[in-house]
Design a protein around this nucleic acid. Sequence first.
DNA 1: ACCCAGGTGGCCC
DNA 2: GGGCCACATGGG
Length: 221
Amino acid sequence: MQLIEIFHKLYREFGEQFWWPAASPFEVIVGAVLTQNTAWGNVEKAITNLKRKRVLALREIANLSLNKLEKLVHPTGFYRQKAKRLKVVSQYLEKSCQGNLRKFFSKPLPELREELLAINGLGPETVDSILLYAGGKPSFVIDAYTKRLCQRLGINKSGDYETLKNFFESNLPRDVRLFNEFHALIVTLAKNYCRTKPECPGCPLEKNCQFIRKERKSLDK
DNA sequence: ACCCAGGTGGCCC
DNA sequence: GGGCCACATGGG
C-alpha cells in the first residue's frame, strides 16, 4: 500500500483536520513544546492560563519570570523543563530576528531546521511541527503514532526518526497542505480507534487494527 | 492502582 | 545505531 493511498483513506474517513489548533504561529510554537509527551487537553489548560494572563506572545514569554511561567504551564507536566524551554526559544527568536517570525521563517528550510534543532529542548518532532504548522514549511512530522502505524502496516520498520521522515518525504509530493493533513489525520486515527477502544472495528487502514496496543507490540517481536 | 499522552536529553554500551 | 532513565500532570 502506497503512502498516498493511506492518506486518501484517512481523508475520506475523517475529513479535513484544520491543524494546528492555534490562533498564531507563536501559539503553535508554545503548543508544540507543551505537548511533548503530554495529552492535548492538558496543553489547552496551560494555553488558557497564558491567555488569561495576557502573556501568550513572544516578548512576554521571553521576559516572564521562570517561576510565574512554571505555574502557568503546570497542568502539562514536566512544567519546570517546559517553562525553561519556552523561555529559551522565545529569547532565541527575539535575538535572532527581533521576534519577527515572518522574517525568521523566510530562511531556507534546511537552515531553519538545523537552527531550531540546535536549541536545547527542541527535538526533531517539535522542530518539524514548528516548521510545518507555524512556518508553513514542507517538513513532515513523525510522531509515536506514525512509527507504530508504519510498523503495524509493515511499510517501514525503522524506528529512526530521520529515516522515517525521509521515507515519507521522498514518497509523497512535497506539499505543505498534504503534510499538514496527513500528520493530523494520523493523530486523529489513533485517538479515534486505538486508544479508547480495545478493538478497532471500522479502522480505515485495515480490519481489526490494533497498532497502538501494547499486546500487539509484543506479539510483533 | 495502574496505563498513557501529538518527546527530549543524558547517559550507557 | 539502540536501550534506559528522569522529567510530572491529569484523564481513563
